[in-house]
Amino acid sequence: MISGFHQFEHTELCMGTVFKFQGRSSLPHGPHISAACDVLHDADRMFSTYKPESPISRLAKGETRVADEDPLISQIWDECLEWERVTDGWFSAFTPQNTFDPSGLVKTWAAQRAANVLLEAGIFDFTMNAGGDILIADDASGELDWRIGVHQPISIAEAPDAILTVVDLKGTEFRGFATSGSAERGLHIWNPKASGKAPAEDLLQVSVVARDIVTADVWATAAFAEGPACLRRLEKTDGVEAIIVLPNGEIDGTSGFAKILAL
């Protein structure tokens, strides 16, 4: 190893899932990774719908108002509304019970903020895996940093090696990759346009690649809610490509997705 050059790999359990940082830095990375993880845990404390004392839980129970809470709550509320507009209503942070639940945005929103902590500290060569959604920093130099395996729509607990396909984002504009599906958490995405906002079940899985991880994540959630017709919408959306798995196991995708397959 070259003196002063540190390879790092850090796994952090947060938000009920796993965040992984992998990269290289000539700076001492430890304190910055810690600071990045603090960003994740702060977001979890603020936005978790599983913690009864979180501002989001208290909002849902009518115990507090957005105006009385941290400005970040108001910020994410606005961002959710903006994404709802951009996706023509297919991404929605309002539950079937009409409470505010930004869970569809918070994980990758927090991941991006955590990555920003590293970038601001001068660490530019890394990737992040936010529970199955991927962020690649511009200067990622690892041999495999730009190659992402897409899991089949089966839980990793059942079949850790089941790979649907592999993409290579090197030399592209894409830095974010996200997958939505029912394999791990069941039917957890509601269809905002269905009667009673019933769970979406017309697809097994959607993977979306975009310029950043948040855009990829939001579109993956929106596409999963919309079902197979999402491909027509994504085909017309700039900077986004997708691959979907239908309930019968067939694969389909946007015409540009074939260009990023690792061959």
Binding site: L13, G16, T17, V18, K20, Q22, K107, T127, N129, G131, G132, D133, I134, G142, E143, L144, D145, W146, R147, I148, G149, V150, H151, P153, S155, I156, A157, I163, L164, T165, V166, V167, F177, A178, T179, S180, G181, S182, A183, E184, R185, Q205, S207, I243, E250, I251, D252, G253, F257, A258, L261, A262, L263
Partner: peptide, 24 residues
């Protein structure tokens, strides 16, 4: 074409795995 290309990409090396948000 996408389907056959996707299948051929199967088994290559990669640095990260993307899938539905897994539990710990």
């Amino acid at each position: 074409t996408l389907k056959s290309a996707a299948i051929q990409a199967n088994g290559s090396n990669f640095g990260n795995l993307s899938g539905a948000t897994y539990t710990t």
